[in-house]
């Protein structure tokens, strides 16, 4: 793995799941929708197929709920909603992230000194 890829992997780890929670917080989403939107964010450098296992984990830990909806064309599709504990986890991340980001900005010299 190149240094650049290694860096974006490290940065993604621990943050991507909250991007997913925030996306579902705005509106209930189909799995394929979440995957496609995150996959389209170039700076996240995520391959779409790696997001499905993440969705699965978020469901197992109880942050997301999933339900099946009948689709007019094709097989039923899974869509996701945010649970109360998912909402709480996201709120916690938001506070943590702000202070984390400010500290890193200050230490690497791009924020307020």
């Amino acid at each position: 793995m190149s240094d650049a890829a290694q860096l974006s992997t490290s940065l993604r780890r621990g943050t991507l799941e909250f991007c997913v929670l925030a996306m579902v917080e705005r509106e209930d989403c189909y799995g394929t929708e979440i995957v496609r939107r995150l996959g389209a964010e170039r700076s996240l450098a995520t391959t779409e197929g790696t997001i499905y296992p993440l969705l699965s984990r978020l469901r197992r830990v109880g942050w997301l709920n999933s339900e099946w909806s009948e689709s007019p064309s094709g097989p039923p599709r899974r869509y996701y909603t945010l649970t109360d504990s998912g909402r709480a986890a996201l709120a916690h991340f938001r506070t943590e992230w702000v202070s984390f980001r400010q500290t890193v900005d200050r230490l690497v010299g791009i924020g307020e000194q």
Binding site: G31, T32, E48, G49, L55, S56, P75, R77, R78
Partner: peptide, 9 residues
């Protein structure tokens, strides 16, 4: 999930 994704795409 992958099957669903491919079918939809």
């Amino acid at each position: 999930a992958l099957k669903e994704h491919i079918a939809e795409a």
